[in-house]
Amino acid sequence: MNGEVRDLAVDTRTTLLDALREHLQLTGSKKGCDHGQCGACTVMVDGRRIYSCLTLAVMHEGDEVTTIEGLGQPGNLHPMQAAFVKHDGYQCGYCTPGQICASVAMLEEIKAGMPSHATADLTAAPRLTPEEIRERMSGNICRCGAYSNIVDAITEVAGRQA
């Protein structure tokens, strides 16, 4: 868990999301739907983004889980968190941890050459276009509608990385 080993005894029905929020009291990961429909619960497991409400905690023994709390803290923001603040990539903030976790993992997917629906040439390295970012981030709903700003934030971080 964010670099630490944590021992937990949970109900077999407990989702990874509830293990985080209720058992570990890491409430940065949000529950918007509990049904894999919104992305608010996005965390990274072994570096890959995942809807933590759609997976049971007991399936993750030994896995490395990174949540928004593991990315950065106030005063020590991850570059993506800082870019979201700078570009106002949020409003109510409820989808935000999920958007940030998803965008950090998503940039790695592009780096690794994974194609998306928006990738025209499946054999070439995917390019970092706004269309690619929008397509790949579409599993994270923001009802406040901060999309335009979120894409600006991600683009800035991606530019810096490249």
Binding site: T27, Q81, G93, Y94, T96
Partner: peptide, 21 residues
């Protein structure tokens, strides 16, 4: 100016109703 609650919201530290352990 940037929102003053931005660091809380982007780090998951802003406490919403269900999260007040």
């Amino acid at each position: 100016v940037d929102r003053i609650d931005g660091p809380l919201k982007t780090t998951g530290m802003a406490p919403y109703a269900y999260e007040r352990h």
